[in-house]
């Protein structure tokens, strides 16, 4: 467990979190390479199925990062996304998974430091939880199938 490096998917809004991640990069602020970013046009585009599929395919954690409340480029995409994140948290909890594997954050395009901080905090949180339990089983089955 000590050297467990989690795989984390970050679904980031083009208008804020994605730009913030970019800014962190250009300012040479480092954040864990565990976080794989997927750019979305708005977090309102993120559906429950995207979060579920990430976990099903073996991601150890998945977060959605959208604009600050009231600042959504498309008015309320981020508040809709926040509700879906809560829905998925409850859904995976009823399946026996830790709800903390899924999270929602709100940041603005200029917050490069904050993005790095979020990426670091979430990575630590997932490290503490340990690997997604489906991961080993999936790889065992794949190995058996080959």
């Amino acid at each position: 467990m000590g050297n467990f490096e989690p795989e984390i998917v970050g679904l980031c809004c083009h208008y804020c979190a994605y730009t913030a991640a970019d800014m962190a990069g250009s300012k040479r602020i480092s954040y864990p390479s565990n976080v794989k970013i997927i750019r979305v046009p708005c977090t309102g585009k993120v559906d429950a199925i995207h979060l579920m599929k990430a976990l099903e395919k073996g991601a150890d954690g998945v977060f959605v990062a959208g604009c600050l409340e009231g600042d959504c480029h498309f008015k309320n995409g981020n508040t809709r996304a926040a509700k879906r994140v809560v829905y998925v948290k409850n859904y995976i909890e009823s399946l026996g998974f830790e709800p903390e594997r899924v999270a929602m954050y709100n940041i603005s395009a200029g917050m490069g430091e904050r993005f790095a901080q979020i990426a670091g905090e979430f990575t630590e949180q997932i490290k503490a939880l340990g690997p997604n339990p489906v991961k080993n089983i999936k790889s065992n089955h794949q190995a058996a199938g080959q």
Binding site: I49, M52, E56, L95, V134, I137
Partner: peptide, 21 residues
């Protein structure tokens, strides 16, 4: 269709957790 996908994903997650597919 959407809910079918979501439920399928949930059932996959559950069975994988039990060590099955």
């Amino acid at each position: 269709r959407k809910e079918v996908g979501l439920l399928a994903s949930a059932l996959h997650l559950h069975s994988l957790k039990q060590g099955k597919t």
